[in-house]
Design a protein around this nucleic acid. Structure first.
Lengths: 165, 165
DNA sequence: TATTGTTATACTCTATAACTATA
DNA sequence: TATAGTTATAGAGTATAACAATA
């Protein structure tokens, strides 16, 4: 099966699964790593803001933060500008985990490229980036694995014009 | 984010979602198309055999076949060699759908490659195939979208060596 | 009146076990 | 005793709606 679409999607799922496995020893799910990593460069964000950045619903963010707070990785502080909101902060332990997560990602990348000639790597990356940009790939996370596919616009009137059945 | 792993996984999920959308007008889910397409080249297979080929559990296969049978796309005949088994057969309508599905896949592939120079396409495909082969990507379907991730080997003793919490 | 965080509920999916009829 | 297909049930995950506090 040399179809580009087939290759890309099965390879993509495989790679996402591999990353999940590399994160497992750190005790992090991909969405949790994404949350912590994003928070690291936006310390003090509100849950709402973070939720939008990660593409999860604010209701789901509650449970996510609950879990990470229980594990001592994030803290909810009062938000300086808005008394309704919580300002999220990373703990020292979380910062270490994020660093280890990035290192895992580096190792993963190196492993992925190991079969590709050094000289071909820039081209592969540039081709992938070009295709991804062309399709407007959102720089979010791994919707597949993080199980936050977003509202699947399949409202009432859908399935209307299907021709089987 | 130019990490190969990140590019590959987000692009893969995107591409898989696009294919799902292209299949929608045919009234087929990816797993259903996979089932019909596979059956086309293995007419008369038992549910068990097909289930293994597609990477779904035999229990799940029942509902899948039920649905397709209701829609008049597959038929359960008595299996010539084994009275316990059902021999699955495609209807004429299903054959047309499979052809349209393949055509949708062709269009999708063409669209994917439209931003890539004609001269670069063979190399892109060969690179992807090389990486995929190196990782032992199973030639199955789109586990992500078909929602059949298989048993997630996360047995009792798992999560033992996690270091957070 | 709108927004932030929260909780509760309903819904969808899937994994498991158990049953039957055959082998 | 094992296997093919089936069914039922429980569990996980997610989406939706509704609420209190604040803007």
């Amino acid at each position: 099966m040399d179809r580009p679409a087939f290759l890309l999607s099965s390879l993509g799922v495989q790679v996402a699964n591999e990353f999940t496995e590399r994160l497992r020893p750190l005790g992090l799910e991909p969405i949790e790593f994404a949350l912590l990593a994003h928070l690291e460069s936006a310390e003090g964000s509100s849950q709402q803001t973070l939720a939008e950045a990660l593409g999860v619903h604010r209701n789901a963010m509650v449970g996510l933060v609950d879990e990470l707070e229980t594990r001592g990785l994030v803290q909810r502080h009062p938000h300086p500008d808005d008394r309704r909101a919580k300002a999220l902060h990373l703990t020292e332990r979380a910062r270490e985990l994020v660093e280890r997560g990035y290192r895992a990602a580096d190792e993963h990348d190196a492993d992925l490229l190991s079969t590709v000639e050094e000289s071909e790597r820039p081209q592969l990356i540039s081709l992938l980036r070009r295709v991804a940009e062309d399709r407007g790939v959102s720089p979010r996370g791994h919707p597949c694995l993080t199980q936050h596919p977003g509202p699947v616009k399949r409202s009432t009137t859908d399935r209307a014009d299907e021709d089987s059945r």
